[in-house]
């Protein structure tokens, strides 16, 4: 029994240690990135249209990536470098809080809970939760989900949302989108829920089997996340987004990534 107590005490000690080390997020990120001419972004690797690793050249490609590059150039000038660190839905916020990255641009929805621990830029994309189902599925809208199994992603807020809009649905959370889509195809769930942009990307990859249905049932504004108390960096990002909106670069990127997606009205996403 003694050993068990020791082991637990050690784990407990570790947890106290983990509470320390705040110093990284206290330094001025803006100052640092101006010196290094580099902004390090946390991005995802498994989201077609937003940020998907192209296995031919190992580079991330998508709307989030292009936005990150454009914002980097706006803040640091034409020589500024955007560096990308791969994150999952689960690790994107811890990576930021631990100081491994300067900012997160990873289909991250602005929510009040998250806003307590990180600071969001103004929204750069208006998404909404939707449903992806096998073609011909009886599920047509979100209320059809009661009594059914819904697949979500660990770390994605769709899990909580489903519990509210369809309380009698059973939710299973998968580790990433690849697994979630496989699970849907293997009938482990009746629908996969996530943001419409992401789901359209998946449907475009599986046009024979899957389709998006039921429109959006929430509003999910995506924001860029930086650490709290980085006001100068935060302001710089907002200024950069405004600039991209005004000079037409933003609309160009929307058209580039979403112009070809069947069923998706990309013009609604334009900055007007």
């Amino acid at each position: 029994m003694k050993k068990l107590v020791y082991a637990m005490a050690m784990l407990f000690g570790l947890s106290l240690l983990s509470g320390c080390g705040k110093s990284i997020s206290d330094q001025s990120v803006l100052k640092n990135i101006r010196q290094s001419k580099t902004i390090t972004w946390a991005v995802e690797g498994d989201k077609k249209l937003f940020s998907l690793i192209d296995i031919r050249d190992d580079h991330e490609k998508g709307f989030d990536i292009d936005m990150a590059k454009a914002i980097t150039k706006e803040i640091l000038g034409p020589k500024g470098q955007a560096q990308f660190t791969l994150a999952t839905a689960q690790s994107r916020i811890p990576l930021l809080k631990n100081g491994n990255v300067d900012a997160v641009i990873a289909t991250l929805t602005i929510t009040p809970e998250r806003a307590k621990i990180i600071s969001f830029s103004k929204s750069y994309f208006q998404a909404g939760k939707s449903l992806l189902v096998p073609k011909g599925s009886p599920v047509k809208k979100v209320s059809d989900l009661n009594g059914k199994t819904v697949i979500g992603i660990v770390g994605d807020n769709s899990v909580e949302i489903i519990k509210k809009v369809a309380p009698r649905a059973k939710v299973v959370a998968m580790q990433d989108y690849g697994q979630a889509v496989s699970a849907l195809k293997s009938h482990q769930g009746d629908a996969l829920t996530s943001d419409n942009g992401i789901l359209y990307g998946i449907a475009a990859q599986n046009p024979e089997e899957l389709e998006v249905t039921g429109g959006t049932f929430t509003k999910e504004p995506y924001g860029i996340a930086v650490n709290l108390n980085q006001a100068p960096f935060h302001r710089a990002i907002n200024r950069a987004i405004d600039k991209l909106h005004r000079n037409g670069e933003y609309n160009r990127l929307i058209k580039k990534w979403f112009g070809q997606v069947p069923g998706f009205n990309y013009k609604e996403m334009y900055y007007k």
């Binding site: 689960q90 998250r114 621990i117 994605d156 580790q175």
Partner: peptide, 11 residues
Amino acid sequence: NAIASVTFDTI
């Protein structure tokens, strides 16, 4: 994993 994703306190 689920708890970490809502608390952001992975450790």
